[in-house]
Amino acid sequence: MFIKDYIKDIASALKSLATGMKMTGYYFTHHKEIITEQYPDNRDTLVLAERFKGEVVMPHDDNNEHACTGCTSCELACPNGSIKIITKFDVDAETGKRKKAIDTWIYHLDLCTMCGLCVEACPTNAIKMAPTFEHSVFDRNKLVKKLNEDGSKVRAGVE
């Protein structure tokens, strides 16, 4: 029956179209289902996961002390050379021994892939990943950061 099939085809086609329209119609009328976030407006309430890998930071305590000894294991662990550690030789005041110490901890945020290998490699937990993400700047040079603050020194007891 050609005509019967023909009509059946049309009926099923129209039904399938109506099913789709019913669904989109449901969403059109139910605004509670809307899931988008209004990003810059919800900045205050925005909660990022605490493990979020946004950038590498070096926590300093109140005495402006950090835990980095300048051992360069993070530099070696980094897959694309975004860490550069410049060391200097400190002379211990008491014993007079020369000791390798950190001078500048340079971090290339523009090269970093946020893999977290440097944090894994650090023997003293001196660096960690911070949950920040608004990194855009107009000048690329601003992405090259010095992580140890001026005048900071290694916390006592960290070897």
Partner: peptide
């Protein structure tokens, strides 16, 4: 607006 509401956005 119609597109947005159907596509569950604002």
């Amino acid at each position: 607006k119609v597109a947005a509401w159907i596509q569950i956005r604002l």
